[in-house]
């Protein structure tokens, strides 16, 4: 049975609970300041790419960067519009370290009438030593947009 007093706190910590795939990855939002955000996915053996190394699959890195960049754009739009990814480029600098959560620091650095331009870095121990970086363009859409 869920503790009712705990529930609002958890909702505030995880804006992803209504989003099935982010929830399945255990994604959380860690900090939120100056239009930047940090999303995190805990280390999980189910997400390993190559069992010989224990390194988390690149698909998880793509997913956290796409989610973080999209959310940074929605925040900059004050939640009054949605976004849809137009393109996303990921550069992989090195494999992530087994046992560490994957974090993504993301920001939306420019908004135009139709497009949000975002960038982010994925890291494990320190943001200065990134695992991957991403740049993406997102179409600004009405809420509830379909295609």
């Amino acid at each position: 049975m869920e503790d009712a007093a705990e529930a609002p706190k958890r909702r505030k910590r995880s804006p992803f609970e209504l989003f099935p795939h982010a929830s399945a990855l255990g994604m959380t939002l860690e900090t939120l300041a100056d239009g930047r955000l940090v999303a995190a996915v805990p280390y999980d053996e189910r997400l390993i790419g190559d069992p010989a190394t224990g390194v988390i699959h690149g698909g998880v890195v793509t997913t956290i960067l796409d989610t973080g960049c999209g959310l940074a754009a929605v925040m900059k739009l004050s939640g009054k519009a949605g976004v849809a990814t137009l393109d996303l480029r990921i550069d992989y600098m090195r494999p992530s370290k087994p046992g560490y959560p994957i974090r993504a620091t993301c920001e939306c650095y420019r908004l135009t009438r139709s497009v949000a331009f975002c960038r982010g870095v994925a890291w494990d121990e320190a943001e200065e030593d990134p695992v991957a970086s991403a740049t993406g363009a997102f179409m600004i859409t009405k809420l509830g947009w379909t295609e």
Binding site: H21, H57, G59, T63, D66
Partner: peptide
């Protein structure tokens, strides 16, 4: 999720 579609492409 766009990340999953991206993962399928990479895989």
């Amino acid at each position: 999720h766009g990340g999953v579609t991206g993962a399928l492409l990479e895989i």
